[in-house]
Design a protein around this nucleic acid. Structure first.
Lengths: 145, 145
DNA sequence: GAGACTACTTCAATACAGTGAAATATTCAC
DNA sequence: GTGAATATTTCACTGTATTGAAGTAGTCTC
């Protein structure tokens, strides 16, 4: 199997894994993406989420309604600016999410014990550079739209 | 940056790249997924696509209509069974797609020249095993639904 | 070759996410 | 304080994808 083929396989596997996670959480792809932004970027105001997702303000209200109803996030009034609402990931309410990624993490850790120092360095370098290439390509594809 | 963080980053980069490709092709995520199945699995009957995507037959008709109208696929009557319609990827009609992946391939090839034989072996092994882990986790997530 | 079955399409109905305008509440500038 | 600006919500509407039932065409069994 050559490099390109391998890359496509990896890419497909990643995308399908994401879909499976979303299905498991009972979310569509867009809501899952929103949830991971919220989880990663900590509590953030609805407006910031709108900018990130390139959606209108009213779409965010509906989206957060769905996530809140499902128990994945919580609305908290911003103490600094009471017009704002901060969207917080509901960590206690999502045991699924933790378990899912813990399992994956465990398997990946086990995999990494196979390699020696030099191999690990090469792999990490490869991953870092692959991320950079993908980001650059994504930017290139997005710029002309 | 630790391994888990790196993995998440890679995963995000892959997903965002896919989204960018889809946007560039003027397709939504679902149609893009269908197109890549068609491209990869060669000409396949509508029913097979329905099974793959877990969609009803009529949804496939609409989906193929959209892809055909956009010039990405073609309906060809199956010579073996004339009830069937084979969905073929329209290679000539999609210069975009080729160009997009050629560019990515070129950058990835350039990256790979950095590594020596042993490092390349480790990287390939890592990718193969990561794919296996992701597939296993995807299956695990899907089985109980 | 008649009847049951299969593959796809058509059509009406439904579900859902997104938009844009108006409403509400709060902050900022003066 | 008053008026302009900002952040979110509500609401009516639009666009689009999916479903399920009915229809059409072809294949298989006997």
């Amino acid at each position: 199997m050559d490099g390109a083929e391998l890359g496509r396989e990896l890419s497909t596997a990643v995308v399908l894994f994401h879909e499976a996670v979303a299905r498991r959480l009972g979310l569509n792809a867009a809501d899952h993406k929103a949830l991971s932004i919220i989880t990663r970027n900590g509590p953030l105001p609805a407006g910031a989420l709108a900018a990130e997702l390139r959606l209108g303000a009213s779409a965010i209200t509906a989206l957060v309604d769905r996530l809140e109803r499902a128990g994945y996030v919580r609305r908290v009034p911003d103490p600094g600016d009471r017009r704002r609402v901060l969207i917080c990931a509901e960590t206690s309410g999502t045991p699924d999410l933790g378990a899912i990624f813990a399992d994956l993490g465990r398997e990946m850790s086990a995999l990494m014990t196979k390699y020696d120092e030099r191999e690990l360095t090469a792999i990490a370098d490869y991953v870092v550079n692959t991320i950079a290439v993908l980001k650059a390509q994504t930017a290139r594809l997005s710029e002309t739209e």
